[in-house]
């Protein structure tokens, strides 16, 4: 399966970004090939609104079946749920640490947004 991690860096040692919608990019890790690709999300960093929605579209288009980030707001969560993408939160410092938490089954799946939206 493919897992999308929000990050500001370019490899597994990069920091896990606690923000989903306004993360600079997503590191999409394929557990079968153990390889990853990077998905740019910088268009959302200065978006006036709708960053979470667009970010969810980006990870869906990348074929991810799971997202690991620090937080997930209501609109992003609704998008990800619709796309059948599971959302996990982690307080790991790096993507690699979050990945090992995920593979050890140490992350809990979100059943609802864990932060409020920025609009309404």
């Amino acid at each position: 399966m493919k897992i999308a991690f929000s990050t500001s860096g370019n490899d597994l040692n990069a920091p896990l970004d606690t923000r989903f919608g306004r993360a600079a990019k997503f590191l999409v890790y394929d557990t079968e090939t153990q390889a990853f690709t990077l998905v740019d999300n910088t268009q959302n960093m200065s978006a006036a609104q709708g960053a979470g929605i667009q970010a969810a579209q980006n990870v869906a288009a990348a074929g991810a079946q799971a997202v690991v980030s620090g937080h997930c707001g209501p609109k992003a969560f609704r998008m990800l749920s619709t796309a059948n993408i599971k959302v996990y939160t982690s307080n790991a410092a790096t993507v690699a640490e979050a990945l090992s938490q995920f593979q050890a089954g140490a992350l809990t799946e979100l059943t609802a947004a864990n932060v409020d939206g920025h609009w309404a």
Binding site: A48, G50, I53, Q54, A56, Q57, A60, K75, T82
Partner: peptide
């Protein structure tokens, strides 16, 4: 321009607050 609509898997989601 405001991401008030999004399409995923051929389904439209409306975010009326946007």
């Amino acid at each position: 321009a405001f991401k008030a609509l999004a399409v995923l898997d051929k389904r439209v989601l409306v975010f009326a607050e946007m």
